[in-house]
Amino acid sequence: MSNFSVGFRNSGTVQILDLKGELDAHTASELEAAIQKCQADNQVQIIINGANLLYISSAGLGVFMAYIEEVRECGGDIKIAALQPKVYNVFDLLGFPMLFDIVDLEEDAVGKFVVA
């Protein structure tokens, strides 16, 4: 049984994905499906809210890597917000802050899209 889920919310034109549980090689396909759904809906301003994300492995990080260029090519972005410290450490371990916009607060990520 999967202990991972993705919730969908909107803030204006921005699509927010609430990640909950443990994102690993088994559950990464659920995140991939969620991002594909955003693309199918022409929704490319995406915020990943990680407040309830308890764990991420390289398979989960790989999903962000696989889609970031496509989303940016369409004029959007995948911004990451509200990560728990131990999950942020994994992003940091692989140097993701160099490539991704990672912020503490979801509203700051929303604000960056509005300004952009």
């Binding site: 398979a59 990080l61 999903v63 696989a66 260029e69």
Partner: peptide, 9 residues
């Protein structure tokens, strides 16, 4: 990222 590569980490 350019290669849209999801594995190898």
């Amino acid at each position: 990222a350019k290669a849209k590569k999801s594995g190898g980490f």
